[in-house]
């Protein structure tokens, strides 16, 4: 119970901090503009709209991988800069609560950011019949995927004393995760190996996400993203504890 209270307190503090810094407005604007720009000018959206707005969701991993590092870069760097981490750790609050609170704050902001693209959905739904239930589920999947990117980016932030370094490190890791088309490379190196290809696909970020947004929400995909979050948060926790020692 105490852990949940601590997490909520920590989340509240971090979440408020995003809005105090005014940075959030710029991030929201850049994200909404980027999403709309990719959809309208890259995906041939006017001619190829499909019921699940797939063209919109397909670009989300790339866009989020670029923007989420901006959200997480100051999560730990400011604590190191102002030496507030030592102060926090002397408080009667567990490290797990701090790590979780910070991650949840970043994830919540990412959620608001994803919701901000609802304007495109609304405007398209006004003109053509969309499958709104499917799109709503795709938004949830995108939110889950954003969570895994937030966890990875905050893991990098734990190791970096500088916000810029945290941003660049997280950007590199997120883009690598999103763009690494493992199954493609395995196919190139060891062709026609169906079993190996299927195995590799199970931890292919892009494949899992596309599979889910195309209507195959499976245990495999869900486990993949949840595991990514758990693994990244657990590692963050260990890293912070090491630093404390």
């Amino acid at each position: 119970m105490q852990l949940i209270k601590d997490v909520v307190n920590c989340w509240g503090k971090e979440f408020k901090f995003y809005f105090q810094s005014k940075m959030i407005y710029l991030i929201l604007f850049v994200y909404a503009t980027m999403s709309a720009g990719f959809v309208l000018y890259v995906s041939d959206f006017y001619e190829n709209t499909v019921a699940n707005m797939a063209q919109f969701f397909i670009y989300q991993p790339g866009i989020l991988a670029t923007i989420i590092p901006v959200l997480t870069m100051r999560l730990w760097a400011d604590e190191y800069k102002y030496n507030t981490l030592e102060l926090i750790l002397t408080q009667p609050i567990s490290i797990a609560a701090v790590v979780l609170g910070k991650f949840l704050a970043a994830w919540s902001v990412a959620g608001i950011m994803i919701l901000s693209s609802g304007g495109i959905w609304g405007m398209v739904a006004f003109m053509v019949n969309l499958d709104n239930r499917w799109i709503a589920i795709n938004y949830l999947i995108t939110f889950l995927m954003a969570g895994s990117l937030c966890a990875l980016a905050s893991l990098i932030a734990v190791f970096c004393y500088n916000a810029i370094a945290a941003f660049l490190g997280a950007l590199a890791l997120c883009l690598l995760t999103v763009m690494a088309n493992f199954s493609y490379w395995i196919e190139k190196i060891i062709p026609d190996n169906v079993i190996l290809n299927d195995l590799v696909k199970s931890f292919d970020f892009k494949w899992q996400f596309e599979n889910m947004i195309m209507g195959q929400v499976g245990v495999g995909g869900g486990v993949y993203f949840v595991l990514l979050i758990v693994a990244a948060l657990w590692t963050s926790l260990i890293a912070v504890e090491y630093k404390r020692k």
Partner: peptide, 26 residues
């Protein structure tokens, strides 16, 4: 170790439950 364990768990989950899918499509 954590990430290798996560990948291994992921592979096992996909092998065992990969065919269980909730069809959310239209």
């Amino acid at each position: 170790g954590i990430f290798i364990a996560a990948i291994a768990f992921c592979i096992i989950a996909n092998l065992c439950f990969g065919s269980i899918n909730l069809d959310t499509s239209d």
